[in-house]
Amino acid sequence: MAPTTRTILICSGKGGVGKTTLTANLGIALARLGVNTVVLDADFGLRNLDLLLGLENRIVYTAQEVLAENCRLDQALVKHKQEPNLSLLPAGNPRMLEWLKPEDMQRIATMLAEQFNYVLIDCPAGIEDGFKNAVAAAKEAIVITTPEVSAVRDADRVIGLLNTHGVKPIQLVLNRVRPKMMANQEMLAADDVTDILALPLLGLVLEDEQVIVSTNRGEPLTLSNSKTPAARAYSNIARRLQGEDIPLIDPAKEGLGLRDKMWRLMQTKIF
């Protein structure tokens, strides 16, 4: 029994900004902190969470069989071998979308909340039925976006919908930050994005090639003791969720050479 379960929707509106990567890494990171965590793939149309976690070959049953009562919940849950505090509830067949309702997702989330401290829901892109089903199951949300106009605009739409559904708190993760471009003012600054969206910043993840390497292998960065920038960022997000006070990194100070420092001088406000 976990009376204080946190059910968190991870959403973005726009596709390809890093929802599933965040869900996988955050799930592992939380599990490593010793909390019982489950990740729920709510993207029934285009499921990928199993692949990023390296669990694609171990799926027997899915949410579909659980809902149809063809299996018990614990039969469908896939426990991560290296990190047994983490389980995955795989998404069902895309054909489920024809009959799946918000109440079905609520039922699953309630069942999961009885066993786990954290339920992380990987939301599908878009704001249609898939989103509405997923949001019905969530209590709080993490909106992930990149510092690009299209991603920020879509995030804004999603935040509006989350507000109407009474989901709160809503926190922001800024992904794929390129410090040099930010320093040169050729990329929206973190402050710009938090001001525009009016959300508190939960984490700031630098653009990191290792993310691709880790997805190739099906081993989230947080699984090893990797010290790459993205791995540190994901672990910090997990610890902040757990109430630890960890300062956000300052992208302007990340890996700057003399030339970049000159640039920064140029950006200093003089009047």
């Binding site: 106009v149 605009r153 804004d156 050729e186 990329m187 600054a189 710009d192």
Partner: peptide, 19 residues
């Protein structure tokens, strides 16, 4: 001028209408 400012201004305008 640097494109971040342009991005910010364009976003603020389009979001005001979206919202």
């Amino acid at each position: 001028p640097a494109s971040a400012k342009t991005a910010r201004d364009r976003l603020q305008l389009v979001l005001a209408h979206d919202r």
